[in-house]
Design a protein around this nucleic acid. Structure first.
Ligand code: MN
Ligand code: MN
Ligand code: ZN
Ligand code: ZN
Lengths: 135, 135
DNA sequence: CTTGGTATTTAGAATAAGTCTAAACCGAGA
DNA sequence: TCTCGGTTTAGACTTATTCTAAATACCAAG
């Protein structure tokens, strides 16, 4: 992904493409690792000629979430992760490695999930967000 | 729920029933509110003749999780909630009130969830925990 | 009952993710 | 070139949770 195509994506989403934002968005759009803010900082700071502040990483990630470029992923209480895969999908956490894999939504259309034989599901959790009408 | 029946439950789970643990477990077993550690502390401290330490609340909640008396619920990044409902179920977060409701697992056996007309689902997330076989 | 060892509790310090603040910086116009 | 609003920065701050070290409770053996 070229820097200028990342710029285009930011502009399309109404985000002014500063060097910090471009480099962070580029990293998010290329990785599949569902990184934490700190992982983004580590991965990206060497790509800029100036120092990159932790505050800027958080500011940018929050801006990108607001703009609909990325989303937050909450799989553990300790920290938030970020994900540029905006297709409807869920997550599979490998408890051994901690790695988070994407599961396309249509792949679990029939519950008692048959994800394929490569996944051994210990447990899963569905969390709904919405509104309750009565009381 | 009587104090001694709570004691029995703790003993059955291999947890020594101290006054602090009994009072915390009793509260957890009676509420349906998926409280945070701090909410447990608030609700319970007046029930003991001695001061109750935050550390004891966390120690006890962690002990009860380990023992299988309660479980952790992670619906938001900011803090962990606790739940004594150990039946297979998921959670519905009312984004207006923040309240968390239990959804029995069999109630969503057919996806594209029909929870009944009292729930307006904005979004939902399924998180699997398990092991991946290939890489 | 004593005594000593182990588990538990406690207050407060420490840790760590995330936010806030105030000053410096930057870039698009006037 | 000058100005101004938006952005970035370092570091302080907040807050949930854990850690620490001392005090306490409990219990078994003598
Ligand atoms: Mn992906
Ligand atoms: Mn319940
Ligand atoms: Zn994802
Ligand atoms: Zn529940």
């Amino acid at each position: 992904m070229t820097l200028s195509s990342v710029e285009d994506i930011l502009i399309e989403h109404g985000v002014k493409p500063t060097p910090q934002r471009v480099v962070i968005a580029k990293y998010m759009l290329e990785t599949h690792s569902h990184p934490t803010a700190d992982e983004v900082l580590q991965a990206v700071e060497s790509k800029l000629p100036v120092a990159l502040s932790r505050a800027t990483v958080y500011n940018t990630l929050n801006t990108l979430v607001q703009a609909g470029v990325i989303r937050e992923v909450v799989t553990e209480a300790e920290r938030t992760r970020y994900d540029a895969n905006m297709t409807e999908h869920h997550h599979f956490v490998d408890v051994k490695s901690g790695k988070i894999l994407d599961i396309p939504a249509d792949q679990i259309a029939h519950l008692k999930p048959l994800l394929g034989n490569n996944f051994k599901v210990h447990s899963y959790q569905i969390t709904f967000f919405g509104e309750v009408k009565d009381q």
